[in-house]
């Protein structure tokens, strides 16, 4: 059992200025997840008739990408390759002071407390993050063979859960890692190669339009990514982009 002091970002809505509020989390079990710890705090708040802390979460098993908190200056907290919902309290000590903040980036406006609007990521995908295939009328799944290395590399990139921690971590608020993961996932596959050049241009344009910054190669994103998406995919995106330029001239 342990007791903690939380400093949580509270902001009523998008127009509110927001500030830190201090809460004591008492009798926290080591086996709890970080979100379960917040549940306990919230139950107390509700009983006192106060508004509980709003935070995004759904699957609570590290895959939906919904949970989004910066804990002591690190998106998803101190444990590498872990989402907040999979962060357990055994990684904290009795008496710890914990700052909890929302993702911060211009493209992610705050909706309430720790909840931000990440729909900009959806719009990047809508710009071109797909293979233009119709339902039905496709060839047999084994008709086009895919070398295992390519399939594996595509899968490495496809593991991105779209949580936006890369944006939260990036000093430039850049969504480069997210975009690169999608671009490279499709570019590695023969089915996705055909549209690869168009895709990379459209998606990077959308990224700029949404107000994300450019990549200065800080590599913070890789460290914060719960799925360990590698910055080598950013290099891959740049390569695809250059190839696209050379091709179109």
């Amino acid at each position: 059992m342990m007791n903690l002091t939380l400093l949580v970002w509270r902001q009523k809505n998008a127009n509110d200025k927001g500030r830190f509020e201090k809460y004591e989390a008492k009798n926290i079990n080591h086996e709890m997840s970080f979100l379960e710890m917040l549940d306990v705090v919230n139950e107390e708040l509700i009983k006192e008739g106060k508004e509980p802390i709003a935070f995004d979460h759904d699957c609570r098993e590290g895959i939906c990408g919904m949970c989004s908190q910066v804990i002591n200056g690190v998106p998803h907290g101190p444990l590498e390759k872990t989402t907040v919902c999979q962060l357990h309290m055994r990684h904290f000590k009795d008496g710890d002071v914990i700052y909890i903040e929302p993702w911060r980036a211009k493209a992610f406006p705050i909706i309430k407390d720790l909840i931000v609007d990440r729909s900009a990521l959806d719009r990047i995908i809508q710009a071109g993050g797909y293979i233009s295939v119709h339902t039905g009328g496709v060839p047999d799944a084994n008709a086009i063979l895919i070398p295992k290395e390519d399939a594996d590399a595509a899968m490495d990139a496809a593991e991105c859960i779209g949580c936006g921690a890369c944006v939260a971590a990036c000093p430039n608020g850049s969504a480069m890692l997210f975009t690169a993961a999608k671009v490279m996932h499709l570019a590695k596959l023969p089915q996705g190669k055909i549209e690869a050049f168009r895709r990379v241009c459209l998606m990077t344009e959308a990224m700029q339009k949404e107000g994300f910054g450019a990549c200065s190669n800080h590599y913070e994103c890789q460290a914060a990514c719960p799925k360990g998406i590698k910055v080598s995919f950013i290099s891959g995106l740049n390569r695809e982009f250059i190839k696209a330029q050379l091709r179109s001239k």
């Binding site: 797909y130 084994n142 070398p147």
Partner: peptide
């Protein structure tokens, strides 16, 4: 069977063996 075909065409990276087959 159609589902697998459809998903592969969409770029779902199913596991493959060294010869490139699913």
């Amino acid at each position: 069977n159609n589902i697998i075909d459809q998903c592969v065409a969409q770029g779902v990276p199913f596991a493959r063996d060294y010869a490139g087959y699913l």
